[in-house]
Design a protein around this nucleic acid. Structure first.
Lengths: 146, 146
DNA sequence: ATAATTTATATCGCAAGCGATTTATTCCTA
DNA sequence: TAGGAATAAATCGCTTGCGATATAAATTAT
């Protein structure tokens, strides 16, 4: 029996589980918006800076283009983004928000912070715990990013 | 521009990214074992206690049976677990390790702690940071679990 | 300038993850 | 004890995530 191989001793299993559960907590609000969590991430990237090539979005989310491309194709079908070939560099696909995609920012703002803080009410973590958590997660991300 | 909706302010995005990256860090060792990360989680559950019904494994991993059942079917095909109907309760499928599945514990022990600590060498977090991180993640998991 | 290389994106195939539904068995209850 | 509710597991359909590969455009080297 190797203690190192016990589930209870695994940071990774906790990250994996916490990520799944917190993502699930977003689901009711995101369903109301008609999108998924990864689609919401793409929207946050574009709300911050519209008109970006696929690669920039992928880098920002630390995902591969083979994940992001189909995600964007589905979002295009939903009418929340549009894609057009880059003018200087025709290999690029420039992704921009449609009016619908832009309007979703306000709806998200109305639903998500409230919805999440209700669910977080029973969480014992304080503001400074979250701040430290964010730093620790950033350390882990920086350690393992390529 | 809503600061609440910026990627940089999101704990969830960090959890999602850290979980993906740390899971990827396991991949080289797990590939050598011929399994995936979720399959490794199932093995850890069974190494700790062999012969469990599908539901107990799913609860331990906080996953639904509709995720775990196909995972177990793939593991059965790989020859690392076997499934048989429960004797008292014929609805259950009791999952047990094969000889191959049992032998993988030692191989995992030889590969994974070493492989991970090599990769973690450049991580600035100390033992006490990990211990606190584990507690914070457990708080989050407890807040959001069903 | 032409060929080789690199870069941007897309496509393919497979494993997860999960909501919704189905099937089989067991439990409970009238 | 017959019938309905609850439970265990499986199936279906869809999205994501990713390794491997393909395609097309741009860059570079010869």
């Amino acid at each position: 029996m190797h203690a190192e191989l016990q589930l209870d001793n695994q940071v990774c299993f906790r990250l994996y589980t916490a990520a799944r559960l917190v993502t699930q907590a977003y689901t009711p609000m995101l369903t109301e918006l008609g999108i998924t969590y990864p689609q919401y991430l793409v929207l946050m990237v574009l709300w911050e800076k519209d008109c970006q090539p696929v690669n920039d979005i992928a880098h920002r989310l630390m995902l591969e283009t083979n994940t992001v491309t189909p995600l964007l194709q589905r979002m295009e079908k939903l009418g929340i983004i549009s894609r057009k070939r880059g003018e200087q560099d025709k290999r690029q696909h420039i992704v921009s928000l449609t009016a619908k995609g832009r309007e979703m920012e306000q709806k998200a703002y109305d639903l998500i912070p409230t919805g999440m803080s209700e669910q977080l009410a029973s969480c014992p973590l304080k503001l400074e715990d979250y701040q430290r958590l964010v730093q620790e997660l950033d350390s882990i991300i920086n350690t393992f990013k390529k």
